[in-house]
Amino acid sequence: MDLIIEGIRKASLLIYTLDAELMGIVLLSLKVSLTALSVGAILGVPAGALICLKNRFPLRHFVLNILNTAMGLPPVVVGLFLYLMLSRRGPLGFMGILYTAPAMIIAQSILAFPIVASLSYAAIGSVPPIIRQAALTLGATSYQSAMAIVKEARYGIISGVMAAFGRLSAEVGAVLIVGGNIAGRTRVITSAIVLETDKGDFSQAIALGIVLLGISFCVNIALYFFSRRGNAAGYRYWV
């Protein structure tokens, strides 16, 4: 118990003094996860919208099943797959990005895409058809009516993006494999916690854990806010 209390005391000091190493790790984590999230959202939201709104989308249910399965992709499997692709002998080895931040971003983008696409699909699919009809009666083209639906689903879509961010920020398997946990270059919060725990430096590990919990808490607050905004609209969609 003393070990934990002492760890928390030292961790508080590290956070309070904005320890340079700690801040470097936190900032790199945010940079990697937010960039990956942006890539996942830029590709995932239109993909979800397309699957949901395009008439006669080929193999819709098959694609959805793939996406739903991919939502639960084990990060270590993604990491292993990407490692094999990016290693010197792999088909993408010529890029020379293994053990760099871009490799970590690619890995996390792969994890984010199905979450964003699938939850965007669900959010867009929950918008009542009356919204599309209302847009059409007011002179919208097919594209404009689709955009009206996507706009109505925005809180659900944002919730999906936030959920994906929650997963990325807590993910360790993929970034550890393709990033290599190199100090100052590819060491992020989760991989640093693993390392510091192995080393027995619990104060640094606890400090990073507290920051990670703080990020997770903020994500959940945002999720709660957006889901409430979405629900507030939902009860009157039919009117």
Binding site: I131, T137, E152, Y237, V239
Partner: peptide, 14 residues
Amino acid sequence: RCITLLLPAVGVFN
């Protein structure tokens, strides 16, 4: 765009 219909369920944009 010269023709419009007010549906019984208006379809309120949020």
